[in-house]
Amino acid sequence: MKSLKLFLVAALLWTPLLYAEQYLSEASFVASAFKTPPKPKSFWLTPTIKPIVQQLLQHPPAFLRTRYWQEQQRTVWILEEIGKNEPITVGVIIDNHHIVQLQVLAFRESRGWEVKHSFFTDQFIASTLSTEQSLSQSIDGISGATLSVNALTKIAQLALFFDQSISP
């Protein structure tokens, strides 16, 4: 009985950690976007911004401030969104309001990891944000990874919206 309880509790507590995987650090991603990385700036979710963010995410945002890096028309955003249970960390490089690169930096879910591959993330390249706050390009889903696909799509929309908010 004791070993059964220990097994159940251990399985319960360690499951999320077994799947935690970081592919690229935040610093390495930022360094890949600029010749000399600029100092980070902070972007606050003001009372006017917050309802739009909530609409894009389809739930209240879990943060009030996010950092970004900017040099002329190029901005870099590192954002997180929950796929099913755990947050997926994604880096987005935007140049002149177009996505140049979108990369999964850390994936912690047990399923849906296919979204980390370039065959999926390359679909976001050159996307812009329409006036209805949707992506200019349609993104093909991956069966069995719907929630992860949705999370990455929301992050792409959010990064483009933040980028437009700082330099319309």
Binding site: S25, E26, A27, S42, A62, F63, L64, R65, T66, R67, E80
Partner: peptide, 13 residues
């Protein structure tokens, strides 16, 4: 924030 709302998560190397 003062009331315990998460403002930001900052990862460090």
């Amino acid at each position: 924030s003062d009331n315990g709302t998460v403002i930001e998560k900052i990862p460090l190397e």
